[in-house]
Structures are given as structure tokens and as C-alpha cells.
């Protein structure tokens, strides 16, 4: 059955058809869009090409840094202790975990310096976890800013990660003291912490870009996220050594489980910081015949994949942020 007199395109009427096309007096051949194009006008709400977008973002770097500093400054203004909380929060966290996993459950089998081991893990993981949580809220919490000013929207998740980076730097100073107090020697290995944290920063920016786009359009992500990060926490070898877990009888038949746990990005960055800071931990790993040099490749790969993928993914919805 054909309808030769109907020339509608396949798929029926497009939803986007204009009900009443704007008629121009005397010049009905040219649409307003064509008229605008002829005069070199550009679309106002269009998504800029990736290259321009990156340039814009780079020009905004001072804004991103200032916005982040202002955020972290205003975060504690209402509390009496003020910026002291930047140090207290990670310390209290580490204390709680030490109480439960170190003293009560006695997980410290095979780790010579358990408190330093645990606190390193908690601090490094917190950086990733909080970047993720802040990233999910970065668009939704700044809607008024998005609806008032023009700037590459990726500035927001970036700024949120910078806030967490500033927190991390404070934590790292605390950590350095703890590590020395618990009897670890200062060595040139410590310098390796810097490249690890840079890679982790890049990774965190990548995942917070992804979660920022998801959180912008599906607010439910924010309710779900705590469960995701807590599961991740327990899988990342923070309270236990993945190396000694792999030797458990139950895991002997499934060697891939240990491989997956080892390649988990959070675990990769934690282990690299531990092996750089803790002299004794390098010995602990050697006792299990586990190396850590290959982890550097994992760290690099995770950072690149997360950042490039996340940036591309976030940019694809650039013009739609702020619509609700």
C-alpha cells in the first residue's frame, strides 16, 4: 500500500518542525538563520569545538584556582576552629579506622608499620572519594553561576578537585609527621610521592568530570554515590594488604581476583604512595614476592584514560548544563 501523494519523510513528522515559519517581508527565500550566517553571526548557546574549549579553559586557570581557594576558605568560616578542621578531619578519620581495624579487629597481619600503612591509605583514598562526591554536586550546586556568567563549565568540577587537592596537601604534611614519628627513615623515595599525586590528581579530575555530567542531569546520583564510594573503600586494600589477601585459601583458585584488586585505580595510587613513603612496607611486599614497579604503568594508564575520556564526555553536553 503506497501513498504516492504523501511526501512526508520517513519517520513521520519531525518534532522540531516550526509551526509558523518566520516570514520576511519581500525576502521569504532567506531564513533568519541564513541571514545571520551571511553577516557572520554565530550561535549564542552553541558548544565550542574541543580545541577552543581547551584554550578557554586554560585562560580561566586563575579563575579556577581563585574560585577553589575561595570555596575552601568559606567552607570553615562558620566553625570556631576554622581552617584547623582541614587537619583535624583526616586525623579523626584515621583514628576511627585505627581503633576498629587496628586494635579491635587486628587486621595488621603482615604489615610492620600498621598505623602509617592505614593512615596513608585513608588520606590518599579520601582525596579520590571527596573529588568524586564534590564533582557530582559541582554543576547542581552552582546553577545560579552557570545561569549568570559565561565560562567553560568544566571549570566547576576542576575547581572542586582543586579544593580537595588543597585539603590533601594539608593531610600530606600531617602524614609526613606521622610517618617519621612511627619510625620510618627519610629517603629519596619520598620524592616519588609527587608524581604519584600528580597522576592521582589527573585521574580524579577525569572521574569527577564524568560524575559531574551524570549528576547534572540525574540528581539521584548524589544519593547513590556514598554506597559506591564505601564499596570502593573496602575493595581498595586500605585496611588490609592485598598481597596477603591473595594468599588466602579461598582466593587461591581464583588468581584473577587478586589481579583485579591490584589494578583497581584507588589501590594503585595508595600502594604507590605507601611504597614511596614507607621503607618497611617495601620489605613487607617483598616478603610476599609482590613487586610494585608495574603499578606505575597502571597509574599512568588510569590517569590518561580517565582524564581524556572524562573531558570528552563532559564537553559533549557543554551547552546543556544549566537547563535543569
Amino acid at each position: 500500500m503506497s501513498h504516492p501523494d504523501r511526501f512526508t519523510p520517513p519517520g513521520g513528522e519531525s518534532v522540531d518542525t516550526i509551526p509558523e515559519p518566520p516570514t520576511l517581508a519581500g525576502k521569504s527565500a532567506e531564513s533568519l538563520a541564513e541571514f545571520a550566517a551571511r553577516h557572520g553571526l554565530t550561535q549564542s548557546a552553541a558548544r565550542p569545538p574541543l580545541r577552543t574549549y581547551i584554550q578557554d579553559l586554560w585562560q580561566r586557570r586563575t579563575f579556577i584556582w581563585n574560585f577553589a581557594s575561595a570555596k575552601s576558605m568559606s567552607m570553615y568560616t562558620s566553625s570556631r576552629l576554622g581552617q584547623v578542621w582541614q587537619v583535624l578531619t583526616p586525623l579523626l578519620n584515621a583514628g576511627v579506622y585505627y581503633l576498629i581495624f587496628g586494635l579491635l579487629l587486628g587486621t595488621n597481619k603482615g604489615v610492620s608499620n600498621y598505623s602509617a600503612f592505614l593512615i596513608t591509605g585513608v588520606f590518599v583514598f579520601t582525596f579520590t572519594q571527596r573529588s568524586l562526591t564534590a564533582g557530582a554536586r559541582s554543576v547542581g550546586n552552582n546553577l545560579s553561576l552557570i545561569r549568570a556568567l559565561h565560562f567553560p563549565r568544566a571549570s566547576l568540577p576542576f575547581a572542586m578537585v582543586i579544593v580537595e587537592l588543597q585539603q590533601l596537601l594539608v593531610s600530606m604534611c600531617v602524614l609526613a609527621v606521622i610517618v617519621v614519628v612511627t619510625g620510618e627513615p627519610l629517603s629519596w623515595h619520598w620524592l616519588l610521592v609527587l608524581p604519584v599525586l600528580v597522576l592521582q590528581l589527573i585521574f580524579n579530575m577525569g572521574i569527577s568530570l564524568v560524575i559531574a555530567r551524570m549528576g547534572a542531569f540525574v540528581r539521584d546520583i548524589q544519593q547513590l554515590l556514598p554506597f559506591v564510594t564505601r564499596t570502593w573503600l573496602y575493595f581498595s586494600g586500605i585496611f588490609f594488604m592485598t598481597a596477603s589477601l591473595a594468599e588466602k585459601d579461598a582466593l587461591q583458585d581464583y588468581p584473577w581476583i587478586a589481579k583485579v584488586l591490584e589494578a583497581n585505580p584507588a589501590s594503585v595510587y595508595i600502594e604507590l604512595v605507601r611504597t614511596s613513603l614507607l621503607d618497611s612496607y617495601r620489605g613487607d611486599l617483598a616478603a610476599h614476592h609482590w613487586g610494585h614497579t608495574h603499578l606505575w604503568w597502571y597509574a599512568l594508564a588510569w590517569a590518561l584514560v580517565a582524564f581524556v575520556g572524562g573531558f570528552w564526555y563532559f564537553h559533549r553536553a557543554e551547552e546543556r548544563y544549566g537547563r535543569g
Partner: peptide
């Protein structure tokens, strides 16, 4: 919308 802060559902804004 002219400022490009609210994306159009249909149509467009062209500016210099």
C-alpha cells in the same frame, strides 16, 4: 537566552 546561558529548545540566537 540571548546571553547563551539557557539553551534553546527550538530555534536559535545568533550574535556578533
Amino acid at each position: 537566552a540571548i546571553a547563551g546561558l539557557l539553551p534553546p529548545a527550538r530555534g536559535g540566537v545568533y550574535t556578533q
